[in-house]
Amino acid sequence: MKLLSILFVLLITISCDKKSEVIYSGQRVIIKPVSAGVEDIDVVRWKVGLMRNLTVSRGIQIVVNFPKIDKKHLHFLVDKYGVDSWVIKVKRRGMMRNETMGYLYIPLILPGQKNVMRINQLSTGSFKVYYAASAVSSRFSNLPCPAFNHDLLIEKVELVTSNPLVTNLVVSPVEEERILAKVEEFNYANTVINGGKELRGEYYLEIAFYNTKRKVKLSNFIELAGVGKVVRERSVPISGCENYTIPPRGKDENLYKKFNFGN
């Protein structure tokens, strides 16, 4: 029985570290990612009210598995095409909208000594999509009564399987294109995207290779497997906040911090 348990753990470890298939074809390199996609979606709670005794939602947290590439292939992509990062396009679709929420880049190369390449492939990461009331600033995020009349509680989220039509990344000079939108660096501790006043909808991710200095994508974008879905949100009355006004910066902020209610 113990031997079976060890074999099971080894199988899980090997499958989780499975490398993407790489094909060289003339001036193109084709990568077939495996074991990559949206892994999980969770609700982030927010304690609000003058006594911090009521609960609404700050937003959601999305966990994603990134493609893994053998180091020899990654070295080639760096030397030949200037790849140094992944770029993630965060998208949301709903009944009346299909929009890009933002761009994040995840470094594949770490700073090091001259002529020394330090490969760093993050296997799993997460980011948050917050309501505007919590995403705008840390000051707004700590208010006892949320700004913009925010009072929504996310009641249900789902992780939905998906089968994207295009699954191969193609690195080629033909695919090079400058990304004009702001591309935020992925922060391992706290990456937050402003989702606006409502979050209901389906969240999916597209990924491509990227050069941070030139701000250029170096491959096509492909949609990753898996969709995080905010199914239902409802309004929660926040008693005591009916006539609350946001204090000027610095004023009365310590009054709420000293109670250490938590958030």
Rank of each mutant, 00 (worst) to 15 (best):
49 G>C: 08
52 R>I: 01
52 R>W: 09
52 R>S: 11
53 N>Q: 15
54 L>N: 08
55 T>A: 00
55 T>P: 03
55 T>E: 14
56 V>C: 08
56 V>E: 06
57 S>N: 08
57 S>I: 01
58 R>M: 13
59 G>T: 03
61 Q>H: 06
62 I>C: 05
63 V>K: 12
66 F>E: 06
67 P>F: 02
68 K>S: 11
68 K>L: 15
68 K>R: 15
69 I>A: 01
70 D>T: 05
71 K>Q: 12
71 K>C: 07
72 K>T: 12
72 K>M: 11
72 K>F: 12
73 H>E: 07
74 L>D: 01
74 L>E: 04
74 L>N: 00
75 H>P: 01
76 F>C: 02
79 D>L: 14
80 K>L: 00
80 K>T: 12
80 K>E: 15
81 Y>F: 15
81 Y>A: 09
81 Y>M: 03
82 G>I: 02
82 G>K: 00
82 G>C: 07
84 D>C: 01
85 S>M: 01
89 K>P: 05
90 V>Y: 03
91 K>C: 10
92 R>C: 02
92 R>N: 09
92 R>E: 05
93 R>G: 03
93 R>I: 07
94 G>M: 04
96 M>W: 11
98 N>T: 02
99 E>L: 12
100 T>I: 13
101 M>T: 02
101 M>C: 13
103 Y>V: 00
103 Y>Q: 09
103 Y>S: 00
105 Y>M: 01
105 Y>N: 00
108 L>T: 06
109 I>Q: 02
109 I>N: 01
110 L>G: 00
112 G>Y: 05
113 Q>Y: 09
113 Q>E: 14
114 K>C: 07
114 K>T: 10
114 K>Y: 12
115 N>Q: 09
118 R>V: 14
118 R>N: 13
118 R>C: 00
119 I>F: 14
119 I>M: 10
120 N>H: 15
120 N>K: 15
121 Q>M: 10
122 L>H: 08
123 S>L: 08
123 S>H: 10
124 T>N: 09
124 T>S: 14
125 G>D: 06
125 G>E: 00
125 G>F: 07
126 S>L: 04
126 S>A: 13
128 K>N: 10
129 V>A: 10
129 V>W: 11
130 Y>K: 06
130 Y>A: 05
130 Y>M: 06
130 Y>V: 08
131 Y>T: 05
131 Y>R: 04
132 A>D: 14
133 A>F: 08
133 A>S: 09
134 S>Y: 15
134 S>D: 13
136 V>N: 06
136 V>M: 10
137 S>R: 11
137 S>V: 02
138 S>P: 02
138 S>W: 09
139 R>F: 09
140 F>D: 11
140 F>Y: 13
140 F>P: 05
141 S>N: 14
141 S>Y: 08
143 L>T: 08
143 L>G: 02
145 C>G: 09
146 P>V: 05
147 A>P: 04
149 N>Y: 13
150 H>E: 06
150 H>A: 13
152 L>P: 02
154 I>S: 02
155 E>N: 14
158 E>F: 04
159 L>S: 07
162 S>W: 00
162 S>Q: 03
162 S>D: 03
163 N>S: 14
163 N>C: 04
163 N>F: 09
164 P>V: 07
164 P>C: 04
164 P>W: 08
